[in-house]
Design a protein around this nucleic acid. Sequence first.
DNA 1: AGTTAACCGAGACGGTACGTCGCGTCTTGTT
DNA 2: AACAAGACGCGACGTACCGTCTCGGTTAACT
Lengths: 193, 193, 193, 193
Amino acid sequence: MSPATRNEEARQAIIEAAFSLCAERGFAAVTIEGIAARAGVGKTTIYRWWPSKAAILIEAVENARDASAGYPDTGDIYADMVTQTASVMQMFTTEFGTIWRGLISAAQSDEPAAEGVARILRVSIDQCVARLAKARDAGQIRTDLDLELAVEIIYGPIYHTWLLRTRPLPEAYMETVLAALLPALTPAPASMA
Amino acid sequence: MSPATRNEEARQAIIEAAFSLCAERGFAAVTIEGIAARAGVGKTTIYRWWPSKAAILIEAVENARDASAGYPDTGDIYADMVTQTASVMQMFTTEFGTIWRGLISAAQSDEPAAEGVARILRVSIDQCVARLAKARDAGQIRTDLDLELAVEIIYGPIYHTWLLRTRPLPEAYMETVLAALLPALTPAPASMA
Amino acid sequence: MSPATRNEEARQAIIEAAFSLCAERGFAAVTIEGIAARAGVGKTTIYRWWPSKAAILIEAVENARDASAGYPDTGDIYADMVTQTASVMQMFTTEFGTIWRGLISAAQSDEPAAEGVARILRVSIDQCVARLAKARDAGQIRTDLDLELAVEIIYGPIYHTWLLRTRPLPEAYMETVLAALLPALTPAPASMA
Amino acid sequence: MSPATRNEEARQAIIEAAFSLCAERGFAAVTIEGIAARAGVGKTTIYRWWPSKAAILIEAVENARDASAGYPDTGDIYADMVTQTASVMQMFTTEFGTIWRGLISAAQSDEPAAEGVARILRVSIDQCVARLAKARDAGQIRTDLDLELAVEIIYGPIYHTWLLRTRPLPEAYMETVLAALLPALTPAPASMA
DNA sequence: AGTTAACCGAGACGGTACGTCGCGTCTTGTT
DNA sequence: AACAAGACGCGACGTACCGTCTCGGTTAACT
């Protein structure tokens, strides 16, 4: 009675084709036909399961990310932030960066894509918030700081520079940013009284 | 040189058509053919003067912005920042926001568009830097802060939230952000010693 | 032999679905998928037993025709011809006409369909030839006339007009045609000498 | 002010491509994409000017026919009929026959195609009627015969046999048919009285 | 005052990709 | 074993825009 069931091989092939095409040619140049051709699959099979190329790439990113590690925790929140943000910036320069840039671009006009992007980010943000909470409990972070906001303050400059392309991202960008932000993140010095 | 001169009426009509179409339907749904039809203009005329729809909208934004004022200056840098960022966030909710979002999206894969976006931003950033420099001279801002970086730190959170769509931008978002950032922007309190 | 026996219910349902779909939407709009859906049957079941939609409809026609009567025989060949051709022309205006037209259309490019059409016609032609033979034996038809040819001469004008659509078939078309053909069909008058 | 005008080269190429494809592979196997590819033309160009492949072939036939001759007239209507019908039957065996068969097939479910087929036939029928009228004036044809009907009686058997595929068309088919029809076509012998 | 060349509207053109439909084959349980 | 359900690779559909290319027509500076 069951319907013929979904073909997992095809799913994998499609996701990989989308990923590699986007990495090679950029998101704007990816077409459903191109993905189908590279995956050796009919267009129908793609349209049956995904509404857009963005949806495929979101799944690709979610798949790839599942294997990845969580937030570093050496006990030094500043060092861990530098480590983590550096790895994000490093990622921006890889094929993941190309794909992530494309997805953010798509999210500006495609509501489901925007939800996918937000869903992907949610995980990273939650991890970051959790790490910050731990640091706060350890007295390394101000107690009166909304940690969601802290994440936006920390990552905001990276995305501002990366997406608005006002200047190239310097290698040690986040060292500088975090140094500048430190007074806003760490507990205020004891008052005079 | 004769009637071989550019038709200013057509230029205006094209820019206005592009603007209104983008405002109504979103950047992704704008087409050169649609602009030509609404402007009552041949496609050739558009291609003669602009390389892409993004280029038209960049010119539209630059045109519209020429009339706008500079940075507020009441003497209180914090209040001025709140005012100015609030007006940016307000702009995001208007048709300019729609167009600006589209241009940023285009900039992710279209180099000339990226340059246009950066060029538009440059003016605002320079104004902001100038205002910050004045505040620094007035002792309201730390002297050891790269002001370009300060702009990224201040506007980063707005763009992070607006472009990545992780949550709606609260009305008083920047009051909160600037309050949190204050320790990082203002001169450090005199040391105890 | 167990459920490994052909499902007669399914066969009936398929034939009826094909028939009704063709009657409603015309042969060109009939699809195997549509038949399967209406018959509540898997596509496989159709492909297992028939090679094409034309084959199903040929079977449908043959089924429906099995119940039908032979050629009228009142003793007056002219009257019987008028009766019979009128009933054929009447049939053309019903859903059988729609299906028959479709099958003839298919027969132009589908060899098995052409054979099916010829097979269906064979029965009618043989009946007609038999009736004509009887009339010939009764002295109502020229003895030097190939009766197969006679059938083509009689039915040719109907099909010419019906298939080539040069004009609508008048109600009493065959009265006129047969009146005109009479001198060619009946024995020649005794010569003068 | 005029729009860019229609490209006559493209029109010719399309008609020739459709013609040759249909001749090679049969009407059912002709596709718009195939025509476009062979003609070196965009699909849009085809859809801009023709509603279907049948329409293209109708134009092809009309074009080709314009050059062709009229009805033979040796003074002997019987001989001329044999000549002309033989040339029609000869045509059926050529690529024109393939195309004509396809168009008649299409005409069964495509109203505009049916009109095109009828339009093409109209010319031939009118020529035939004119020739018959001349013969009637010369006393070779009964005066009480509707000549349109006569055409249907004469060509009916050919089309019956050719389209219904009940048997192959013998070489000298129409000699036999016309011989059989003679008594119905020629003036009746003087009555006895 | 007439000539003329760049610009303009209109839109046809060769293409690419779209998203859909139906094909005929296949796979997966169910009966 | 035959069946329903339906996923699959495939090919064609008819449409939307792309960017290029004629077409006349209309101007405005330069003979």
